[in-house]
Simulated assay, not measured.
Amino acid sequence: MKINICMEAPVDIIVNEKKLATFMCTPKDLEDLAIGHLYSRDMLKNIDDFISATSCESNRRLLILTKSQETKPLFNISNVILSGCGNGSIFNEDILEKESLNIKYSKKIDVIKEAFLVMQKQSVMYNTMGGMHCSAIFDDKDNIFVREDIGRHNAVDKVIGAALKERVNLENSIIMTSGRISLDMVLKAAGARIPIIVSLSIASDLAIEVATKLGICLIGRVKYPNPIVYNDFLGGII
């Protein structure tokens, strides 16, 4: 019997000749991973600041060139980003001082549920081998961009990068994830100015606290008959 096995490998991402981190990830769509990660941490101001990405050593090193000057990142990370739990952002109290996104964007829950099903259908690696996470950007033109990775936070970075390359207006978009909504997911959405996060799972208490402060709507258990809407600021989700 043929067994499909999910891919995981260490990938060093080098930005302007300085090592950013080693990512334990699925070595696919690495340019998207780097762009999304840098943008969500406010280390890439916009897609026009991105110059090039060069992969070498069998996709184990990715050399990134940007126009951006070295800036203080929105949040800190460890030097090695593991694919499993507990390896995302490092909490900093300064995050709570960040202003609310104050973005007036909403979608009806039935439309969101349909988009989530589309994401799952397009998640080829998950559907063929399991053990993977998927994430999608659902924009105001009803486009759905999907990326997958063994790590849920990597999948989020990848799909943010993919959407940026297509010049999607992320302020009028929703990010969807197969993983739970933890603090790192909220920080990535805040950095990318995405006002709504949707999950197959649930949100943590800290994620809810920070998301409420930053004006980010969280929706959990989206495939249930009655999804959990943790904070509907505009009253337009249900």
Rank of each mutant, 00 (worst) to 15 (best):
D48P: 01
M1R: 14
P227S: 13
D232S: 09
K108E: 13
C25M: 05
Y39P: 04
L164H: 11
S68R: 01
T212G: 07
T54H: 14
L206H: 08
K72V: 06
I51V: 09
G151I: 00
P225V: 03
L101P: 11
N102I: 00
N127I: 00
A190K: 08
E171H: 11
I150W: 07
T71E: 15
I112A: 14
F145Y: 12
V15A: 08
P10A: 14
K28M: 12
V146Q: 02
V111Q: 14
L65T: 14
G220Y: 03
L200H: 13
M129N: 07
S182F: 04
I81K: 10
K19N: 12
K72A: 08
A163E: 08
A53K: 11
M24V: 01
K67G: 09
T26L: 08
G215L: 05
L62C: 07
V11R: 02
L117K: 15
S89K: 04
I174K: 07
P27N: 06
E209A: 10
M132S: 09
N87T: 12
F50E: 04
G191N: 03
F138E: 11
K28Y: 14
I175Y: 09
I112R: 12
K67M: 07
I174F: 06
I95K: 07
I238Y: 11
C6E: 11
A190D: 01
S204Y: 01
S123Q: 06
V210I: 11
